[in-house]
Design a protein around this nucleic acid. Structure first.
Length: 657
DNA sequence: GCCGTTTTCGGCCCGACTGTTTTCAGTCG
C-alpha cells in the first residue's frame, strides 16, 4: 500500500471510513450519491474533501485523455494526441469528414501500437493499420522537426480555444466554427459572455434552447463532467439493473458500454432493456431517486444525469433484437465501426435491431450476440477485447485468446492483515478467502522499511508460526480440501532498489511482493534501475502495483516500462495487476506490451479488508483487456507449478511440499 | 487519407433525439 491510498495509518478513522464505504450495498452507494450531490454544489471545479467524493477522476490524469505535453509520455502518445487534434481541427474547419475520421483512426492505432513509433521507418510505420504513406510521412516529419506543417497550418486558422469549445456537451464542430467565424469567439468564457449579451440570437441554427444548453453544458464541463472509477459505476449500474428488472413488461435488463468492457473509468453508464413496450421502463427510469435531471426522454432512449453528475442512458429494444442491441451498445465505437464494415462488405447492414440484408431488407439474425458475430465470420468476442486492438483480425483467423476468468483464479498472492495496515485479523481474511474457493492464499504484510508499520523480524516470524498452524484448516463451505496458506511479505523497494531484509531472511518466505512506496520523483533512469534491481533479487517474486499510479490522483512513475518488462521476463518475476479500483496497475495497455516480452502476471486484490477480496473482478477484467490467458497468470496455476515459479533462482531453499 | 478475394477509384457505420425548422442539420454514442 502507499501513503494516501487508503488513509495514513495514523489516521485509522479515514482508513475505516474508506473501508466501510465499500461495505455498503449497491443501494447504500446510492445513498452516498444523494449526500454528496446535495452537500457540494461544485461549480468551480474544486475537489471535494470526503473520501468517497474523491472517486471522481479529474480530467488529465486518466490514460485515455490527451497526455500533458510537459510530462514524460511515450512517443506514440504524443503522436496520437497530435493526430487527434488534427482530426478535430479538420472537423471544425469543415474539412473532409472522411479525412478527419482517418486521422482519428490513425491516432487510436498509433496510441495503442506496441512498438515505439519514433524508432520505425516508413515501411514499419505503414504496417500500423490505418497508416499510409501520407501519415507515415507526417510521423517522420514530427520526429525530424518537432512539428507537422499541415497541423501547424490548420492551427493558424483555428485558435486552440475553439477546439476547447467542442468539449461542451451539445456544442460540436459546426457550432464552434459558427460562433468563431461570426462573432470571433475563441474561448469558453467569451462564449458565456456572448450568450449573456444576447449576441448568439441572430446566428442561424441558434435558438433560446441552444443558449440554455450551452450554458448548462459549460456548467457540467466545469464541475462534474469527470469520469468515475469502475467500482462506483458498477455499484450504481447493478442497482439500476436490479430496479428496472422488476418493472412489469421488462424481459431482460443489463448494463453495456464501457462498463461491460471493464474500462478503468466510466464516463457514463449504458443500461439496456428488452420489452415490447418501453413506456413503463422509461418512466421507472426517470423516477429513480438519484435522478437529478432528464436530458432526453424518448421511446427508444432516455438519458438522465444522477445527482452526482453521472450520465446514464437507458435503451429499450424489442426482445428479438436483444443480441444485436447488446453487441451495439457494448461498443467500443471503434469495434462497432469494424463490425459494420464487415457487414457492409457482405451486403449486410448491422444496427442495434439486427443484421439485415441490404437488398431485401430482411432480418437475418438479432437474438444473440453469438449469432451476430457468427454471421460476420467471427467467434463471439469477449467485451473487454472490443477496442479494435486487433480482436477483429484475430477473430477472423480464429486466434482469439482463451481469456483468463475470475473462476480460474486459485488464489490471491498479495493481501494484508491487522498486523500492519489491514483491518481484519489473519483468521478472518483466511476464512473469507476460503469461502471464495481459493486453493491457496498468501498473507503479505508490510516489511519494516515502511517504518510506520512497525514490523520486526520477531513479529513476522510469529505470524509465520500462526500461518503454519492454520495452513490447511480453512475450507469452502461444503469443500473437502483445506486451503493452503502461504506466508509472504510486501517489501519496500528503496531508492537504490534494495528491499527490507537480506536474502537469507527472505528465503524463509513462500512469496515476496516488492513495491515502490516513496521517492516517486527520481529520474527515469534511476527509477528504472531501481525496479530492475528489485527484479534481479532472487527472492522477489512479484512487483506490486508496478507504476504506483492512483487513477486520477497520482500519475504513473516515469519509468522505462519496456526495460522493466524485459527484466521481469528474464528473471522470472511476475508483474502484479493490482485489482484495487483506485489502482488497476498495471493498466491494460501496459499489460499488452508486457505480454510481448513473455512476462508473467499475478492478479492480486491487495486486500486490506475482507471486502476488498471481491475487487478481484476488476483485476480480472483488466487482465482480460490485456488479452491474458490462464497460462499468463501465475495465481491460476496449480500449487505445484506456482511453488516452482516462486522458487525462482533462490539458493539454499527447496520447494515446500 | 486509406484501402482492396467485387475495387488502384470510389467508396468510407448507423440511428435517436433535439432544436430550429417546416423538412432537416447538428450532436452524440
Amino acid at each position: 500500500m502507499s501513503p494516501g491510498t487508503r488513509g495514513h495509518p495514523r489516521e485509522p478513522g479515514r482508513e475505516r471510513a474508506a473501508g466501510l464505504r465499500r461495505t455498503t450495498s449497491a443501494a447504500g452507494q446510492v445513498v452516498a450519491d444523494h449526500q454528496s450531490g446535495e452537500g457540494s454544489r461544485r461549480h468551480d471545479g474544486e475537489r471535494p474533501e470526503e473520501p468517497f467524493l474523491l472517486r471522481f477522476v479529474p480530467k488529465g490524469l486518466n490514460g485515455s485523455v490527451p497526455a500533458h505535453p510537459d510530462s514524460m509520455t511515450r512517443s506514440n502518445d504524443e503522436v496520437a494526441a497530435l493526430f487527434q487534434e488534427y482530426a478535430d481541427l479538420i472537423s471544425i474547419t469543415g474539412g473532409d469528414a472522411y479525412k478527419a475520421r482517418v486521422y482519428e483512426k490513425a491516432a487510436r492505432a498509433i496510441g495503442g501500437y506496441h512498438a515505439d513509433v519514433s524508432t520505425l521507418d516508413a515501411k514499419g510505420l505503414q504496417e500500423i493499420p490505418g497508416v499510409g504513406k501520407s501519415i507515415a510521412e507526417k510521423v517522420a516529419e514530427y520526429f525530424r522537426t518537432g512539428s507537422v506543417s499541415a497541423v501547424d497550418e490548420v492551427r493558424t486558422k483555428i485558435p486552440a480555444g475553439v477546439r476547447r469549445l467542442t468539449a461542451i456537451p451539445t456544442l460540436g464542430p459546426k457550432k464552434a466554427l459558427a460562433v468563431y467565424e461570426e462573432l470571433g469567439i475563441s474561448s469558453v468564457d467569451e462564449l458565456v459572455d456572448a450568450i449573456h449579451a444576447e449576441k448568439l440570437r441572430d446566428l442561424k441554427g441558434f435558438g433560446p434552447r441552444t443558449e440554455e444548453n450551452i450554458l448548462h453544458g459549460v456548467e457540467l464541463l466545469q464541475s462534474s463532467g469527470d469520469r468515475v472509477l469502475l467500482d462506483v459505476a458498477m455499484d450504481l449500474a447493478d442497482d439500476i439493473v436490479g430496479q428496472l428488472s422488476r418493472v412489469t413488461g421488462c424481459r431482460r435488463c443489463t448494463y453495456a458500454g464501457s462498463l461491460r468492457r471493464v474500462r478503468e473509468t466510466v464516463g457514463d453508464i449504458d443500461v439496456l432493456a428488452a420489452a415490447q413496450k418501453s413506456g413503463r421502463l422509461m418512466d421507472a427510469f426517470t423516477e429513480l431517486p438519484y435522478v437529478a435531471e432528464v436530458i432526453a426522454h424518448g421511446r427508444a432512449k432516455t438519458s438522465v444525469r444522477t445527482v452526482k453528475g453521472l450520465a446514464v442512458d437507458l435503451r429499450v429494444v424489442p426482445p428479438d433484437s436483444w443480441g444485436a442491441a447488446q453487441q451495439y451498445f457494448t461498443g467500443s465505437k471503434a469495434h462497432n465501426i469494424r463490425t459494420r464494415e464487415l457487414a457492409v462488405r457482405e451486403g449486410l447492414k448491422l444496427s442495434e435491431y439486427g443484421l439485415f440484408d441490404v437488398e431485401s431488407g430482411e432480418k437475418i439474425v438479432s437474438e444473440t450476440e453469438e449469432e451476430v458475430y457468427a454471421r460476420l465470420g467471427l467467434p463471439w468476442i469477449a467485451p473487454p477485447l472490443r477496442e479494435d486492438r486487433g480482436e477483429i483480425e484475430a477473430g477472423l483467423r480464429d486466434e482469439l485468446p482463451d481469456l483468463v476468468g475470475e473462476s480460474d483464479l486459485r488464489g490471491d498472492l498479495h493481501t494484508h492483515t491487522d498486523l500492519t495496515d489491514g483491518l481484519a485479523p489473519l483468521e478472518e481474511m483466511a476464512q473469507a478467502a476460503a469461502e471464495r474457493g481459493y486453493a491457496y492464499y498468501a498473507i503479505t504484510d508490510h516489511g519494516p522499511n515502511l517504518y510506520m508499520q512497525q514490523m520486526t523480524e520477531e513479529r513476522i516470524l510469529a505470524q509465520r508460526e500462526q500461518v503454519r498452524e492454520l495452513d490447511g484448516t480453512y475450507h469452502k463451505r461444503g469443500g473437502r480440501r483445506g486451503m493452503r496458506l502461504l506466508h509472504g511479505v510486501e517489501l519496500n523497494i528503496d531508492p537504490d532498489g534494495d528491499v527490507d531484509w537480506p536474502e537469507e531472511f527472505l528465503a524463509g518466505f513462500d512469496v515476496c511482493v516488492a513495491s515502490v512506496h516513496s521517492h516517486f520523483n527520481q529520474t527515469r533512469g534511476a527509477l528504472t534501475r531501481r525496479i530492475v534491481r528489485a527484479c534481479e533479487n532472487p527472492c522477489v517474486n512479484i512487483i506490486g502495483h508496478p507504476t504506483t499510479r492512483l487513477i486520477g490522483k497520482r500519475p504513473p512513475l516515469d519509468v522505462d516500462l519496456d526495460e522493466v518488462f524485459a527484466a521481469c521476463a528474464r528473471t522470472g518475476t511476475a508483474l502484479e495487476i493490482n485489482a484495487h479500483p483506485d489502482r488497476l496497475d498495471l493498466r491494460d495497455e501496459d499489460i499488452l506490451r508486457a505480454r510481448r516480452y513473455g512476462a508473467k502476471f499475478a492478479v492480486d486484490s491487495d486486500a486490506h479488508s475482507v471486502l476488498h477480496l471481491a475487487n478481484m473482478r476488476y483485476g480480472v477484467g483488466t487482465a482480460q483487456r490485456g488479452w491474458l490467458t490462464k497460462d499468463d497468470v501465475i495465481n491460476t496455476w496449480p500449487e505445484t507449478r506456482l511453488r516452482h515459479f516462486l522458487d525462482k533462482g533462490r539458493t539454499g531453499r527447496t520447494s515446500r511440499p
